[in-house]
Amino acid sequence: MNRKTQAAEVEVLDPMTTHPVLIRKTIWENDDTFTLTLDMGDYGQGFRFLPGQFNMVYVYGVGEAAVSISSDPAKPAVLDHTIHRVGLVTTALAQMKRGDVIGIRGPYGSSWPIDCARGKDVCIASGGIGLAPLRPIIYTLIKRREEYGRIIVLYGGRSPLDLLYRVELEKWANDFNVEVLVTVDRGDSSWKGHIGVVTSLFQYIKLDARETIAYVCGPEVMMRYTVDELDRRGIPQTQTYLSMERNMKCAVGFCGHCQYGPTFICKEGPVYPLPRVRPLLDRKEL
């Protein structure tokens, strides 16, 4: 079957039906976060995704969780999902091994816009596992590094051992001229870097406000402070994008769980232009 036919068939399948795929490997990023690499097999033939989109990941007989794709969009046949082990499904996923089969449906949701960044500086601000949905856009940017100005990655974790993708962070800095600034909430004896919240990293960089596109993902409180900081530095709201998180059951706008004010995060999000969600960020328990 050629690729085109397959794609059409994937499209007409029931959006709530999962597709079995093979686990190729599990990499533990820290004590409670791991990256699953999936071999998408036949399902992968028609599978394309954009940076920032997510999948619904199913464990046979246990349940489903919404997880953003953390790998390179140019390689859709092999997908990474970086997962925080916290609930029933993610704990079951943590126990799975190479050769085990899980279910995937997706991709869903909006993506980090890339066209607006061409010829501009890019400032990526992330906290904790929030770096995972940003990794695909970083891969995309460095692939055509010459098309962008400065690329700045600000990243904060709880402690040095909690930091994700440490090897890659160094590689991006060394090989792709990315300005990587990392901070932790609590240091340890080996840590010689910065200590403090993500927003405290802004003191080390100068941004050309009109020429900078910002992508932000992390805990809501971190995003609130970050957009305030970007605002103080004069970055127009229309140049800032952030990725929101809510409970999701269906990912296609039916289940109602992911409502964020008037929006459904699964349909309109997870990536929003800041003006769309700016008034909502200040609303507690929305």
Binding site: M16, T18, Y58, Y60, G61, V62, G63, E64, K249, C250, F254, C255, G256, H257
Partner: peptide, 22 residues
Amino acid sequence: CSTVEDVTDLTGDHAERWRRWD
């Protein structure tokens, strides 16, 4: 609004996913 429930039979050879009102 709805949620989903995942169940298996006693052997574990058969699993189902159900939607129910939430």
